[in-house]
Design a protein around this nucleic acid. Structure first.
Ligand SMILES: NC(=O)c1ccc[n+]([C@@H]2O[C@H](COP(=O)([O-])OP(=O)(O)OC[C@H]3O[C@@H](n4cnc5c(N)ncnc54)[C@H](O)[C@@H]3O)[C@@H](O)[C@H]2O)c1
Ligand SMILES: NC(=O)c1ccc[n+]([C@@H]2O[C@H](COP(=O)([O-])OP(=O)(O)OC[C@H]3O[C@@H](n4cnc5c(N)ncnc54)[C@H](O)[C@@H]3O)[C@@H](O)[C@H]2O)c1
Lengths: 207, 207
DNA sequence: TATTTAATGTGAAAATATTAACAATGTTCA
DNA sequence: TGAACATTGTTAATATTTTCACATTAAATA
């Protein structure tokens, strides 16, 4: 199970989201083609992904929802769980904290940080916001491993440096500023404009 | 130029973002390896993408930033431009509107919609917010082609239906509810949790 | 000017990712 | 029960994406 394709990881996360919804609805089993339809991919793709993670069922009533969730958790989660922090408690930062809160048991947004003294030392969207000057201290105290950057674009580079120096191992960058980090830090970047432009391109093609 | 790989489209959008920053800084030419480094990919990849869109330069001083921006615009943009609307003017909706405003000339967030009567008929983040009951009328009036869904997850399905019925051709779904749309509508979905879980997985691997 | 250097463009190879095809086998129901 | 059916797991084929390797040529330099 050592070398899963990056794409598969992304899909596993998506499957789990769907499976958790099924679980909440009391659905105990799900067919590969059901999962496939919900994710707009083929059933073979789903079966292959599931094969890769080593889960299988002898049943012909589909996969056991609960069991599959557990196997995916084995892949993605760590036993102790991981703590993340949001840097920049503005509109987007708050939306992310609110959204995320309580969604996963092994992944927590444990703190936020902001330079704005109005925000620092308050609880924002249910999570304590610390002043940026406390970054190193709090990252160590709360064992924060992942930083989510939602500061203005011009501050992204310096914030990323601070995060790396504080010992963080993964960064999720939502600003439009491209970042660079050392080899031993994993970086993921997302820009809504790219998503929207993809939609625009395909809308144009369909016309 | 009819069949560009989907991946290339995403990268072209990203290149343009970087090129616009270069332009603003007064940088007139850029090497393939510079673009590559900024985007954490190889220079060959950049050259191949640029080859695919039919741009080339005889110069050995890199690509002409302005010219390349124009070629990418030819691919992604339409002459008249496209209008989008945000459905659900909450935290995320507002963050998106604020972020997007004025970033692109051919892609505009022309309206937002909300059921909350407090929000409807006000200007939120610089864009007028309409009541949901006006959806059909305004979509036609303002020629809105793309809908960005940022309502609570339980409302996503019905909102998507309304959007499709109103004649929209592309949907960008930010809720955690998987949607289904007719063939002639392009759907893009994004869930932050998946991004964060990818980071978590790779942080775990590196340990 | 002649030589060296460094950049692009691209065919071919390699690597990744997806899909087709089908054997194996529970499940359904006549 | 047993034939028909449906679903999984997986190998092989296909398709897509990325990278290699290098010919070509502008630019820099001696
Ligand atoms: N990727 C996307 O899809 C997307 C979408 C929307 C917004 N954005 C980007 O996300 C970022 C945040 O957007 P927003 O609308 O929340 O902005 P905002 O202005 O509401 O919030 C930014 C916050 O960062 C704080 N801040 C400023 N400098 C800081 C620093 N050096 N260290 C710590 N905190 C600092 C501010 O006090 C503020 O609270 C922006 O860069 C925006 O462009 C990205
Ligand atoms: N994909 C992601 O990365 C991501 C991140 C954060 C939040 N989210 C999701 O985005 C959505 C919005 O999050 P938020 O924090 O902005 O929530 P929010 O509660 O602040 O905003 C939701 C808005 O939608 C409005 N609304 C409710 N029902 C509606 C309907 N039927 N039609 C039109 N408008 C309606 C509400 O009045 C409110 O203004 C949620 O589904 C949330 O889970 C996704």
């Amino acid at each position: 199970m050592n070398k899963l394709p990056e794409k598969t990881i992304g899909r596993l996360s998506e499957y789990r989201r769907t499976l958790l919804i099924c679980l909440a609805k009391g659905k105990t089993h799900i067919f590969s083609h059901e999962l496939a339809n919900l994710h707009h991919i083929t059933a073979v793709q789903v079966r292959r992904d599931i094969m890769l993670i080593g889960y299988s069922t002898t049943l012909k009533k589909g996969y056991d929802v609960k069991a599959l969730i557990d196997v995916i958790a084995q892949i993605i989660d760590t036993d102790e769980g991981l703590n993340a922090a949001v840097i920049g408690a503005g509109n987007l930062g708050r939306a992310i904290i609110t959204y995320f809160n309580g969604k996963r048991t092994k992944l927590r947004i444990a703190a936020s940080f902001d330079v704005d003294t109005e925000k620092a030392n308050r609880v924002i969207a249910g999570v304590k916001c610390y002043p940026m000057t406390d970054l190193n201290k709090i990252v160590k105290e709360l064992n924060i491993r992942i930083g989510i950057i939602t500061v203005p674009p011009e501050d992204a580079v310096s914030v990323a440096e601070n995060l790396v120096n504080s010992g963080i191992k993964g960064i999720l960058n939502y600003t439009s500023t491209p970042l660079s980090v050392p080899q031993n830090v994993y970086l993921e970047e997302y820009d809504m404009i790219t998503s929207l432009e993809k939609v625009a391109y395909f809308v144009k093609q369909k016309k």
